[in-house]
Design a protein around this nucleic acid. Sequence first.
DNA 1: CCCAACTCTCACGTAAACGGCAAGGTTGGG
DNA 2: CCCAACCTTGCCGTTTACGTGAGAGTTGGG
Lengths: 158, 158
Amino acid sequence: MTTKEGPVAAGRLMRIHEVAAEVRLTPRSVRYYEELGLLKPAARSDGDYRLYDETDVERLRFIKALRDDAGFSLAEIAQLLEDEAARERGHAAYHATTDPVERMRILHDRLARFDHQIEMLRTKIERLQAMVDETEGRRTGTAARINELESSGAESAR
Amino acid sequence: MTTKEGPVAAGRLMRIHEVAAEVRLTPRSVRYYEELGLLKPAARSDGDYRLYDETDVERLRFIKALRDDAGFSLAEIAQLLEDEAARERGHAAYHATTDPVERMRILHDRLARFDHQIEMLRTKIERLQAMVDETEGRRTGTAARINELESSGAESAR
DNA sequence: CCCAACTCTCACGTAAACGGCAAGGTTGGG
DNA sequence: CCCAACCTTGCCGTTTACGTGAGAGTTGGG
């Protein structure tokens, strides 16, 4: 009943410390991300243990990359990935309807979200590139001064 | 006596709220960055007011970019820029000595730091690019499904 | 069935990066 | 010289992103 069904992910389910180790996070962080609505385990055991599948792992990896590499806050990541609640609704809705128009809408929605993600990342890349360019400029200045010194006093070098 | 001298920066000096406004930071943050050793005002007034010059503004801009765009922590930024203390020592040392060998060493040092900065930024760019690629992969999959639906049920669309 | 290892949900503690206030000092135009 | 607007150094408060138990329950191999 808490099972995330779906057409994929028939592999085995993992417990929280397993996925945490896999993506190099702590169980605490994974639970915290769930608390913020970043993801929801594929299932729960009878004893209410969180159980994760491969897609959860991928999602966690993506979250970690967004946090570590892109430096987004968890709040921003929540925006980018949208609440897991909304995502699940979208997924369920897709399989609940046979209406192709509705399915179309959902797919276009998903496409738009991917485009948004790509755009945010691209923007970040551009800014970083600008910083690289600037730093290279300074580097060139320093390198020039080295050349000056090197050619002016040309004798004491090893 | 607290003046940062140097051959450049003869422009006028600004007070903390001016530079803060200029680089879109709060005076509080600027003081905090100083506390962490990220920068030091060019001078102090008689009444001990912090006074900044144009190079300080540039430095602050760079710091902000590293924080906002690259997502580095202030501690990491401190590493990248090295303690202002060390920087100042290097600068003073450069002008204190006339020994070309010593000057050479200082310049090569500076060059190495630039190279390190560039490398860190490049690494970050590569990771972001990898994320873009991955997201584009997913996007392509969704786009394909849209095409399927579009050609299979080709009549109900507006 | 037993027990070690794992998990659950509170709940409080912490480091980073500031925000905001207090109590007092400084600046500079009128 | 006066005063509004700015600044100073403390110092405590807050948010984010977790760490760290506490107390109780679950799992699974022997």
